[in-house]
């Protein structure tokens, strides 16, 4: 993509049309309230990698009462100093629309994509799972890891650290299976995601 700037309209007005809109009545409840029509959405946010930018994004969520289910951030373009923040949130369609608009108006935010609404996407998470045990449990842990295509990245006589990548559901399933086998510690990255197809962000 030649021009990453916002000289072209970033979101068409139709993005603000009331498709999916809640019944007329605008009953905006707190985003944190578990609403019947709350949905989980994954946003990809391309930002200038400047001091405080993550604080700005996180502050927007906490200040306006939106949920953060998962958050990841890393520089993706060192030359241009761009970082990508992947944030999983939940809310009613109206709140999801607000979140997009609110993110979009932050000055260091270059682009916002709603990967859940804008089209198909790939979403992955990585986990490092420490399992401690001996005997049959230790063998069983290795067997399960093999089934899940988890890699052993550290081992001692009594422990393994497994690296596992996949959907959050896959990680959850793996962790549940490890629990009776001596699960000792878990680190997860949170979700990173990207749109399917040939288009850049």
């Amino acid at each position: 993509m030649a021009d990453r700037r916002r000289s072209s309209p970033r979101a068409p007005d139709s993005a603000y049309d009331k498709t999916n809109k809640a019944p007329q009545g605008n009953s905006k409840t707190s985003a944190s309230a578990k609403n019947a029509d709350a949905q989980e959405h994954t946003f990809s946010v391309l930002v200038d990698n400047e001091a405080g930018v993550l604080h700005r994004v996180v502050g927007l969520f906490s200040g306006r009462g939106y949920n953060i289910e998962s958050l990841t951030v890393s520089e993706v373009d060192g030359g241009e100093h761009l970082s990508k923040i992947t944030v999983v949130t939940s809310g009613t369609p109206q709140i999801i629309e607000q979140i997009r608009a609110q993110l979009d108006r932050l000055v260091p935010v270059r682009k916002v994509a709603n990967l859940t609404a804008d089209g198909p996407s790939v979403q992955r998470e990585m986990g490092l799972i420490k399992v401690v045990g001996s005997g049959e449990a230790r063998v069983e842990a290795l067997r399960v890891a093999d089934i899940f295509r988890a890699q052993v990245v550290d081992s001692t006589n009594r422990s393994f650290v497994f690296e596992i990548t996949g959907s959050s559901e896959k990680l959850n399933a793996f962790i549940e299976l490890m629990r009776p086998l001596g699960l000792a510690d878990i680190s997860r990255t949170g979700i990173v995601a990207i749109a399917r197809g040939d288009a850049g962000m």
Binding site: Y16, K18, Q94, Q102, D104, R105
Partner: peptide, 10 residues
Amino acid sequence: DPSSINKNVQ
């Protein structure tokens, strides 16, 4: 301001 649209009133 796009965030003013549909914020309080649809």
